[in-house]
Design a protein around this nucleic acid. Structure first.
Lengths: 96, 96
DNA sequence: TCATCAATTCGACAGTTATCGAAGTATCAA
DNA sequence: TTGATACTTCGATAACTGTCGAATTGATGA
């Protein structure tokens, strides 16, 4: 089964990920993205009571951390969870 | 081995853990505690360039999150990593 | 008792961040 | 072209947080 190549994260990226995961709302967003295959920002707004501006801000944080990928298509932004990155982060912490 | 009983964390505790892990210095401290069996605050200060006040603050954060246990003995504080709690947190995130 | 040492608490400050409304930028449809 | 939709950027604000020095508490030893 597809263990895939073990991904290496820089110290810097691990810090960004930890920071990204420290906000409950972002974790919720991440779960929502992970539950579907590909989600648009609008779908998320429909479930999270948050302004478009705030949501956009969170998306940027998640993207900078490398936890999601944002594929802009026309006026939509399709979001996908980078499971390999999340996995690498968890693996690192598990080694403590 | 000893997978032990799977530990259940409340949403609240998961948030505290995520917050605790979001500061790089706290992660370092956690690693240091995890590397030995039982460490005193002084040992940590010896390696982390930080004031006693700041260190004490971080310890409280880690303890509140449930990530460490602080056993006070005389004038020393002996710290142990709660691996079961960390594991439970990681397991939860892995389920995303 | 007195001095010392380990750790905590307090008060303050600087830097960060989650949040919003408003304005801006594309995109698409009529 | 006009209007609507989807998201982003900007500016501001309130709340939070990491940090320290100083004062405090509690234990130990001379």
């Amino acid at each position: 089964m597809a263990a895939g190549k073990p991904k290496m994260l820089s110290k810097r990226q691990r810090e960004l990920i930890a920071k990204a995961l420290s906000d409950p709302r972002r974790v919720e967003i991440l779960k929502q993205i992970g539950s579907g295959n590909c989600v648009a920002c609008g779908d998320i707004r429909a479930r999270q009571d948050v302004s478009a501006a705030t949501l956009s801000h969170h998306m940027k944080e998640l993207e900078m951390a490398g936890l999601i990928e944002i594929a802009r298509e026309g006026k939509y932004a399709n979001l996908t969870l980078r499971r390999d990155v999340l996995r690498a982060y968890l693996d690192h912490l598990a080694a403590i």
